[in-house]
Design a binder for these strands. Structure first.
Length: 420
RNA sequence: CGGAGCGUGGUGUAACGGCUAACAUCCCUGUUUUGGGAACAGGUGACUCCGGGUUCGAAUCCCGGCGCUCCGACCA
């Protein structure tokens, strides 16, 4: 894509109503636009990143047998009354509205109820199980206080997977598979090293749930990590009993602030029972389905990546989620776009694009300093500069955004560099 | 939901109750410049969040509303 045609522009200063690093940088670089507190639009660059993130999650969910679907945002209140989650006294962050005829509906904040109800239509035999279904969906939560930029919004994208199993044993096996898939996802998102599977309060049906917590000063949670075993637990469950249970000693633990980027847990029969999701086993006996729930917010993950990986000059995207693989920057000669340098850059842009690379081509006739500053702010992993100077050498000048390292290579060697 | 702070061109800031609301940036014209946000000249752009009130006079003081941020509570 040509940067001259990108309608968004960078800005030097962040709006004063944003304090969080993720929102400041994402707004300055033109990835997102704030509509209101906790509500952000994703602009072309932001959407590209979001799609990279959802692409990675989708791949890993499919690997573990997930079937993608898309449930509705509008929610039928009768389902939620069956599980006692409609009443504002029980669940206080609903957005509710009304149909023309006065019928109350809610905007979905999570989707256990509707999906369980759908499954009840299709599941009748042990032969139908297990099932894993997931979706990417905009969730609405009427938070009393939105904060931390795109990391805690009132409207945000969420990947939610639900599993339906015959019994605890089958559930545990599926849970373990998805647990591993989550670890792979965070690794691929570039935050694997600082993301810990963390024991947290488990709710009614299991002792613990697991949160995936990424170390960051911008986080809202406090976790304790045991450096030796790699085990971690949330402050909310830090008791002697739990420590004994996990085989940890208080003295070894290191306290970290962290961002909850994922959360998985056993739901037991909390939803299947009230909503009538049962199956017949081999003996013809009616059994409740055991459910699990697995959340991961792509928009929060995007904010987390910015918080964790950016530097003083701007965003530093990992290759896997960057909006483009290459930022091609041309420093025009006196003739401008039609000069030797301009033509060479056009040619390279067309070559690279034909070879299938995703290239953002900064073809704007601006001074070098401004283009470099923009390039750093936008944070594409690899920058190629076409200039009079480089043209004379006959090689491509590559600069790696993350390390700042510069290297000169031939065009033929580029694919090897990009594969790294 | 408790506490605190703040709303002024697109963005960031300034202006004692008193002149045509100022400066920077962005944007537009032109000249010049070209490897880290250049320089000069000119120009566009604001009912100072909204509604009331006090006053000869309100961006400024008072009341109400709306919005934003931060701390805390909450976060299935």
């Amino acid at each position: 894509m040509r940067q001259s045609q990108l309608f968004t522009k960078t800005r030097k200063e962040a709006p004063k109503d944003e304090v969080s690093k993720n929102a400041q940088l994402l707004i300055r670089a033109g990835y997102i636009h704030k509509e209101m507190a906790g509500v952000y639009s994703f602009l072309p660059l932001g959407l590209r990143v979001m799609e990279k993130i959802t692409g990675i999650i989708r791949e890993e969910m499919n690997v573990v047998g997930g079937q993608e679907l898309s449930l509705t945002a509008l929610q039928d209140k009768s389902l939620w009354e069956k599980t006692d989650r409609w009443d504002d006294a029980k669940v206080d962050n609903w957005f509710k509205t009304k149909l023309k005829n006065g019928t109350e509906v809610g905007l979905g904040m999570t989707h256990e109820e509707p999906l369980t109800a759908i499954m009840a239509e299709y599941v009748s035999s042990y032969r139908d199980l297990p099932i894993a279904a997931y979706q990417f969906q905009t969730k609405f939560r009427n938070e009393t206080r939105a904060k931390s930029g795109i990391m805690r919004g009132r409207e945000f994208l969420m990947k939610d997977m639900y599993t339906f199993s015959k019994d605890e044993k089958e559930h545990a096996a599926y849970y373990a598979k998805i647990h591993d898939a989550y670890i792979k996802i965070f690794k691929r998102l570039g935050i694997g090293d600082t993301t810990h599977a963390t024991f947290a309060a488990g709710g009614i049906f299991s002792k613990y749930s697991e949160e995936f917590q990424t170390e960051s000063e911008a986080g809202e949670d406090l976790i304790y990590v045991d450096p030796k075993s790699g085990k971690a637990l949330n402050k909310e469950v830090l008791t002697d009993e739990v420590l004994a249970d996990l085989g940890l000693s208080r003295a070894d633990l290191v306290e970290k602030k962290s961002i909850e980027v994922g959360n998985i847990f056993n739901l037991g029969t909390k939803f299947s029972e009230p909503l009538g999701l049962t199956y017949l086993n081999e003996k013809g006996e009616k059994q409740p389905v055991i459910m699990g729930c697995y959340g991961l917010g792509p928009s929060r993950a995007m904010g987390t990546i910015v918080e964790v990986l950016s530097d003083e000059n701007g965003i530093v995207w990992p290759k896997s989620v960057a909006p483009f693989a290459i930022h091609l920057v041309v420093l025009h000669d006196k003739e401008g776009k039609d000069g030797t340098v301009g033509k060479a850059a056009e040619e390279l842009y067309s070559d690279l694009t034909k070879q299938g690379y995703e290239v953002l081509f900064d073809d704007r006739e601006l001074r070098p300093g401004e283009k470099f500053a923009d390039s750093d702010l936008i944070g594409i992993p690899l920058r190629i500069v076409v200039s009079e100077k480089n043209l004379a050498e006959g090689k491509l000048e590559l600069k790696h955004r993350a390390s700042g390292k510069v290297e000169k290579i031939t065009e033929a060697e580029l694919s090897a560099v990009l594969a790294k």
